[in-house]
């Protein structure tokens, strides 16, 4: 079937079985490689994207369910040359080691800060607790989210 939706503001029409995962469509049909496969079981958070602003595990989300919805991936925030304030905050804190978990965490951060521009440390931990980081960069990531929140508040 043909499913129409937007990704990072661009209209897309994808002809795929409706049970195809959103992750598969993003990576293999639309070439958006910033959203990553980690477990396929909603256990690690590497595949997190936003659907209508809400964080969603794209590894299990069926494409049929995103018809007419707005999907945002890490490519929709900024680029390596022109990073979004959230990405810039992660760079400023050097909040990464291998970096595999980061795009998912950045997307959960976006959803959090859109909802709550001034989150407490506990709010941030709660928003990111579904994400795994194996390198142990957690404290830097928490600082990066606080920094991003401050930047975005300042810009608002």
């Amino acid at each position: 079937m043909t499913i129409a939706f937007t990704v990072n503001g661009v209209a897309q029409r994808v002809d795929a079985p409706e049970t195809t995962t959103l992750l598969d469509v993003l990576r293999n049909r639309l070439g958006l490689m910033g959203t990553r496969y980690g477990c396929g079981l909603e256990q690690c958070g590497s595949c997190m994207v936003l659907v209508d602003g809400q964080p969603v595990h794209s590894c299990t989300r069926e494409i049929g369910t995103v018809a007419k919805r707005a999907v945002t991936t890490v490519e929709g925030l900024g680029t390596a040359d022109k990073p979004h304030p959230i990405q810039q905050a992660f760079l400023d804190e050097q909040a990464g080691q291998c970096g595999y978990c980061l795009s998912g965490i950045v997307m959960s951060t976006k959803a959090l800060l859109d909802r709550n521009p001034n989150p407490s440390r506990a709010d941030i931990v709660a928003a990111l607790d579904k994400h795994l980081c194996r390198c142990g960069t957690h404290q830097r990531i928490l600082r990066a989210v606080e920094r991003a929140a401050a930047t975005l508040r300042g810009a608002a």
């Binding site: 070439g31 490689m33 910033g34 390596a80 990073p83 760079l91 050097q94 990464g96 595999y100």
Partner: peptide
Amino acid sequence: QSVPRADLPAKLSGAAFVHDVL
């Protein structure tokens, strides 16, 4: 000097891993 990591910007914004090469 604490020079920033050269590889992080790509990892925060798109394709960066062997997994991402198609």
